[in-house]
Design a protein around this nucleic acid. Sequence first.
DNA 1: TATTGTTATACTCTATAACTATA
DNA 2: TATAGTTATAGAGTATAACAATA
Lengths: 149, 149
Amino acid sequence: MTGTNPVLTSAGYLLLKAGTQFHGVIDEALGAEDLTGRQFLVLTFVGGEDQLSQLELSRRLNLDPTIIVGLLDELGDRGLVNRVRDPADRRRHLLELTAAGRRAQHRAAKAVAIAERGFLAPLGASDRKQLRRFLLEVMQSRLPWLGDA
Amino acid sequence: MTGTNPVLTSAGYLLLKAGTQFHGVIDEALGAEDLTGRQFLVLTFVGGEDQLSQLELSRRLNLDPTIIVGLLDELGDRGLVNRVRDPADRRRHLLELTAAGRRAQHRAAKAVAIAERGFLAPLGASDRKQLRRFLLEVMQSRLPWLGDA
DNA sequence: TATTGTTATACTCTATAACTATA
DNA sequence: TATAGTTATAGAGTATAACAATA
């Protein structure tokens, strides 16, 4: 197709489309665990190193704090996440995974990894690694909690 | 940060975040042209090689046909796009850019290219090119109208 | 007086269904 | 009878503002 506008083969446009399409792929892959991509990220962040408050979680997910409430309500009802009052500052809720939450996160992470493999299948293993390095390079300054992973 | 979950440094997660963040960057860059990213893509597709109907446009943008209506109404009111009845099938509207529409698309494309440069600034020129090749490889089968650009 | 989390409300966006005109 | 485009409506998702409890 000779006349395709350069915009439509630019890295930026392809990045946008890859992002949205991969989002769909993820949500589908997580359907078996009855999780959305967003819920999976909540589990992942809550299960991470630093014990997060709701406000800190909202910043990492780039979501309004009011949205976090409903997310945690549901994951709490399903017995995957607990809210614990911070004894040092009783306004804050510290978040932690239950044992079931940890198991669900692990299963979901496997499903996501497989989906990612499938999505990137047109690339060979070393190209996939290099793509990851490029993206890490680009995003490092924009995702401060990555540190220098 | 030693304990960062591998999910958060995976190609897939970084792809998602890069996509959403770049979306924000684009919308901001296009603010000067008073266009959203979506409107810019409409102009770009309509200005492209094949003369599209609204239905075909909705497929390329992956948007419901009912959403296209409002988009074209506004871009039409602003004198950037025209709807022309297809003489061969009078149910269809063929879309075309006005002269002003073509100028707006060109200006916007420049702004977007600059924004993309900024977004990918952590990468050198040859890494940017390679990133684009990787993304093209991955997305080629998912964006059929790219052909083998 | 400021901050964390919560609730209620309003707004935006999208999906669904029904309609017109063409085929 | 099916399709392209349109309109109206309802639903989902989000942002805004106000509130209770802590600091």
